[in-house]
Amino acid sequence: MLEGKVKWSNSEKGFGFIEVEGQDDVFVHFSAIQGEGFKTLEEGQAVSFEIVEGNRGPQAANVTKEA
């Protein structure tokens, strides 16, 4: 699992980007967020995730919010 911080997200469009130190930003779709209820990410929020190869390149999977 990698750790990063949410660079920005748009809940209306359903995606955002995660900033990882020393690496390119990672695309995240809201379907990759683990948990119940409305899935949102806040700018600056710490997250853990895996990287998978998506249709348009690397993207985050199994995203969990850190406490």
Rank of each mutant, 00 (worst) to 15 (best):
M1A: 09
M1E: 05
L2E: 04
L2G: 03
E3I: 15
G4D: 01
G4S: 01
G4R: 00
K5A: 03
V6S: 00
V6R: 00
V6H: 02
K7Q: 01
K7I: 06
K7F: 03
K7T: 03
W8R: 04
W8A: 02
S9K: 13
S9A: 15
S9F: 15
N10G: 03
N10L: 06
N10I: 05
S11C: 14
S11T: 13
S11V: 14
S11I: 14
E12K: 13
E12Y: 10
K13I: 06
K13D: 04
K13E: 06
K13R: 11
K13Q: 08
G14H: 11
G14S: 11
F15M: 03
F15D: 00
F15C: 05
F15N: 01
F15I: 08
G16H: 03
G16A: 13
G16S: 03
F17G: 01
I18S: 01
I18R: 00
E19N: 06
E19W: 09
V20P: 01
V20T: 07
E21T: 10
E21S: 11
E21L: 12
G22M: 05
G22L: 04
G22N: 07
Q23G: 11
Q23T: 07
D24N: 13
D24Q: 12
D24E: 11
D24M: 12
D25V: 04
D25H: 03
D25G: 03
V26Q: 01
V26H: 01
V26D: 00
V26T: 03
V26K: 01
V26G: 00
F27G: 00
F27L: 05
F27K: 04
V28L: 07
V28R: 00
H29G: 05
H29M: 06
F30H: 08
F30R: 06
S31D: 08
A32W: 06
A32D: 12
A32K: 06
A32S: 10
A32F: 06
A32T: 08
I33L: 13
I33E: 05
Q34P: 05
Q34C: 13
Q34K: 10
G35Q: 08
G35C: 10
G35T: 08
G35N: 07
E36I: 10
E36Q: 11
G37Q: 08
G37M: 07
F38L: 13
F38V: 14
F38R: 12
F38I: 14
K39P: 11
T40N: 09
T40E: 09
L41F: 06
L41N: 01
L41E: 00
E42A: 10
E43Y: 13
E43M: 14
E43G: 08
E43L: 15
G44S: 04
Q45H: 07
A46V: 14
A46F: 14
A46T: 14
V47T: 02
V47D: 02
V47S: 01
S48L: 13
F49R: 01
F49V: 02
F49W: 00
F49D: 01
F49Y: 00
E50A: 07
E50G: 03
E50Y: 13
I51V: 10
V52P: 00
V52I: 12
E53G: 06
E53P: 09
G54V: 04
N55V: 14
N55T: 14
N55A: 14
N55Y: 15
R56D: 06
R56W: 15
R56C: 14
G57I: 02
G57A: 03
G57C: 06
G57V: 02
G57E: 01
G57R: 05
G57L: 02
P58L: 10
Q59D: 02
Q59T: 07
Q59F: 08
Q59E: 12
A60T: 01
A60P: 02
A61D: 05
A61R: 11
A61Y: 07
A61F: 08
N62V: 05
N62W: 06
N62Y: 06
N62M: 08
V63Y: 00
V63L: 07
V63D: 00
T64D: 04
T64A: 08
T64S: 10
K65Y: 12
K65T: 11
K65E: 05
K65Q: 09
K65A: 12
A67L: 13
